[in-house]
Write a protein that binds this DNA or RNA. Structure first.
Lengths: 338, 338
DNA sequence: GTCGTTTTTGGCAGCGCTGCCAATCCGGTT
DNA sequence: AACCGGATTGGCAGCGCTGCCAAAAACGAC
């Protein structure tokens, strides 16, 4: 059953006007509930719309509407990945807030590739969105140029460690790293290792590690060893990474992971190897995933306000305020693995 | 540093034509690499574009382009949630495949609410997308009416258990449920319980359960007890649900979970309670999440081809083929929890 | 150099809608 | 009955681009 009817011409606003016996402008006013029109006109238009099954064409609408005033009611969003749950969470916060303002999201996934990000920014810009939201503060020169040339609101999300282009909403990953180290040191751990994923792609993980080492240093300690896994973060990578690290250094008493996925894998590894947590080895993650809280021993980690970042970002782009950086902070979850 | 320059008029194709000293049509042909133009014209246009930083306006483009032929190069996607990793996975497959064909995705999240789905379909339709992709086969009458009236390709994803509107790509959840039950029965489990989440919203989970009970019945068995948790699936809900179930029925030897998230929570519960898996209790899930494979004992579950569903769906909508239902099948992962 | 092709090119009419403006209508006044 | 101010209305010019078409240029064979 192919529903492909000869596409024919879809119902247009002019059809509605004819059917309702009013002018096009009146239909337009009624539909957007803007300007003044009589009750009678409103009813006739409503009937005609229902009878004809009219669906407004927003493409035409946003082309006609004063580009400066109305905008296209589209918001472009570029995120690096969908595999890491933090980005769907972020998207969730964004779309929820955006929906209520009548915006639609056009989404691109850059796969952590700056060149793809640049291409996506270009593609999204061609839809003349009201605003463009990107992840992180580090971009290709070309990306920055395009972003600036677009003449629209720009929101950089997730990270506040550095200068932004317009609006920045996120948390300080450096501070996260520092807090993580401080927590481990305070609990008496001294022989600390790190298991992470590809830091050249996930720059924020790199910033956390930098902050972590910085705070270790200030505490008179240093990272004893590190294992960096190629590819994106995953429980499997975390488990494998911990295995490798422990094979080299049996004396570690705590391991900092690049995020909760990795840490979860590490925890599984400990279970499999019979290493008591945190007796033999303490584990610390990042993100505050729901699943990490359901573990027999809740994971010690840092929770980031991902939904809030999305919400705040969505609020800001509607407004007309000045450029601004919003640090939404984070929460250390003591958990039971440290 | 507010980058809001007086929006001014953005560079248009006419500006490029003037700058390059050629006609608008020529610029259009060069940019779309369509029709014939001289090498010289191509170069001059390219230079002008670079000099002016021109970004094509796709809104105007898709309004002008013969609606029937070109379409808007937008694809509307409605998914029920972003919290369950299967949908980001699906989106991943979709956007990857879509990107390579030059389509952009406009995404709406229905939150498992049929009325919201209907509203989103309307909103997305107003962008005159080339195709609309929705989740599942059950929709409001209004949603179906709008979908049909759109005169575009429709893809219903994830589920093939029932009649579709146009193109259907997914797996049979009934068959998944049956296979799960068959597996448990074959391994000798007889006292089987179920822990699930809200089935009135997640209809596919309901279909799996129906198939599961059906196959149990055919095997001369029946579900001994079930615990349905309100709200969406999560590890926490799975753990809590298992606790409640086991408090009522201490004699169960296996539990079927509505999905891997729930099962993972159940596994954590078993660890916490010291119940040997699968000695004391066997666990079976659904989805085949990566994380479930990294557990000390890999979870016994059924892996669905989520990326492939996205890919195949994206391929189909480009084509002009007849209505079609594609069952992508699934893979039973024996794992170590059964 | 001429003529028939083929390639390349520019002009211009829309696509469906909104913003602007002038025309019309309405109710109450004088 | 003529008049007035505000509410309501319709016409129409674009928004930036593409499709169509006819004109111009380039090419090739004679």
């Amino acid at each position: 059953m192919n529903i492909h009817q000869p596409p024919g011409r879809l119902v247009t606003l002019a059809d509605v006007a004819r059917e309702a016996g009013v002018g096009e402008s009146t239909v337009s006013r009624v539909l957007r509930n803007q300007g003044s029109y009589s009750k009678r006109a409103g009813e006739r238009v409503a009937e005609a719309v229902a009878r004809l099954g009219y669906v407004p064409n927003r493409v035409a609408g946003s082309l006609a509407g004063n580009a400066a005033s109305a905008g296209s009611q589209l918001v472009g969003i570029v995120i690096p990945s969908l595999a890491n749950i933090v980005f769907p969470d972020l998207l969730s916060g964004l779309t929820t807030a955006l929906d209520s303002t009548g915006f639609q999201s056009v989404i691109g996934v850059s796969d952590y590739d700056p060149d793809r990000e640049e291409a996506l920014v270009g593609a999204l810009l061609s839809w003349r969105p009201t605003a463009l939201m990107v992840t992180g503060l580090e971009h290709n020169p070309g990306t920055v140029a395009r972003l600036r040339a677009g003449g629209i609101r720009i929101v950089e999300m997730m990270d506040v460690d550095g200068p932004g282009l317009d609006i920045v909403v996120g948390v300080s990953h450096r501070a996260v790293g520092r807090a993580s180290a401080a927590h481990l040191l305070a609990r008496g751990y001294r022989r600390i290792g790190y298991v992470g994923h590809d830091v050249t792609r996930d720059l924020r993980a790199g910033k956390r590690l930098a902050g972590f080492e910085e705070a270790l240093g200030e505490g008179g300690q240093r990272l004893r060893d590190r294992e960096i896994m190629a590819g994106p973060s995953s429980a499997a990578a975390g488990r494998a990474g911990l295995d490798r690290l422990m094979a080299r250094r049996t004396d570690l008493d705590a391991v900092y992971f690049s995020n909760d996925d990795m840490a979860l894998g590490g925890y599984f590894g400990c279970l499999a190897n019979g290493w008591a947590v945190p007796g033999r080895l303490a584990l610390f993650g990042f993100n505050g995933l729901d699943i990490a809280a359901a573990m027999p021993q809740p994971l010690s980690t840092i929770r980031t306000p991902r939904l809030a970042i999305g919400r705040v970002a969505a609020e800001r782009l509607a407004g007309n305020g000045p450029a601004e950086t919003v640090d939404l902070g984070f929460e250390l979850i003591a958990g039971a693995t440290v």
